[in-house]
Design a protein around this nucleic acid. Structure first.
Length: 160
DNA sequence: GCCAACGTTGGC
DNA sequence: GCCAACGTTGGC
């Protein structure tokens, strides 16, 4: 099956692209997704080997795509933080027998030579129909078309 | 910190 | 099943 492309948002104060680089094996599980659409993308469409635009949200002028990552888990699996009462993302309705929330493993691949800010994304005519530039688009995991992925890589001065 | 956009919840 | 109220996201 052909590789798919994604954009995944993270607030750099909470978990940045640098943080991912500093993880063991440069890999971390993407926990805390509590949105059904985003979960369904992970469950139904994501596959090992997919490529990811790592996006810093809520970061002022720094807001934008900062790097490239890869999905490395074979499939989405239960997000255990939903089971832990001490966790911010605890959800009493998610059980071991019937886990409501899932996560995948994401691996650091490469930083963009120059980050591509949201402002620059919006200024690019060829990216006008990319989800992330559209207003009110809050989904933290979004599918990205290959042509858009390639374009952003080019703007960022890197290729995979 | 503000607030628009949007998702979820729950009363009916 | 509708929709108002509420909570969250995320750009600014």
């Amino acid at each position: 099956m052909a590789r798919k492309y994604w954009l995944m948002k993270s607030e750099p104060d909470a978990f940045s692209f640098e943080d991912l680089k500093n993880c063991p094996k440069k890999t971390e599980h993407w926990d805390g997704i509590r949105n059904y659409q985003a979960r369904n993308f992970m469950r139904d469409d994501m596959q090992k080997g997919d490529w990811v635009l790592f996006y810093h949200s809520n970061a002022g002028a720094e807001t934008g795509v900062v790097g490239l990552a890869e999905i490395v888990s074979k499939e989405a699996y239960p997000d255990h933080t939903a089971w832990d009462k001490k966790e911010k993302y605890y959800d009493e309705k998610s059980t071991q027998e019937n886990p409501r929330w899932l996560m995948v493993d994401v691996k650091y691949k490469k930083a963009l030579k120059t980050p591509v800010t949201l402002k620059e994304l919006k200024a690019q005519k060829s990216l006008a129909d990319m989800k992330v530039v559209q207003r009110g688009q809050r989904l933290s995991i979004q599918p990205v078309e290959k042509k858009h992925f390639d374009r952003v890589c080019k703007m960022g001065g890197v290729s995979l």
